[in-house]
């Protein structure tokens, strides 16, 4: 049934309105929001007063490291398991 719900949604968009792809794929939108949130947090950290350049650099380095740690943590949660078998099974016919 889920199949037909989307078809209906696409058909309704025929009236010329912009459609609601955003609702189809809420994750894309969440992405934008999260990005903004992160950016706000990062700036706050960077404007932390009159600390010396060296300390600022160190803080920036810490921030970057933390960002990278977050990224790698998330990769761990989404990366396909059984990578060896997965990449072995990924076989395509030539195209074009």
């Amino acid at each position: 049934m889920a199949n037909f719900i989307t078809i209906d949604r696409i058909r309704r968009s025929r009236d010329g309105s912009s459609g609601d792809a955003a609702n189809d794929l809420p994750l894309y939108m969440a992405a934008g929001e999260q990005k903004q949130k992160q950016k706000g947090g990062g700036e706050g950290g960077g404007e932390g007063g009159d600390s010396e350049g060296g300390q600022k650099m160190a803080e920036k380095g810490e921030d970057l490291k933390e960002e990278m740690d977050n990224l790698l943590d998330e990769i761990d949660t989404v990366l396909e398991e059984n990578a060896e078998e997965f990449v072995k099974n990924y076989v395509q016919r030539g195209g074009e």
């Binding site: 994750l27 990769i75 989404v78 396909e80």
Partner: peptide, 15 residues
Amino acid sequence: RPDKGLYYLLERQGK
């Protein structure tokens, strides 16, 4: 997939 694709992950994290 927006939740699994690693490019989209970079996008989501502002990278």
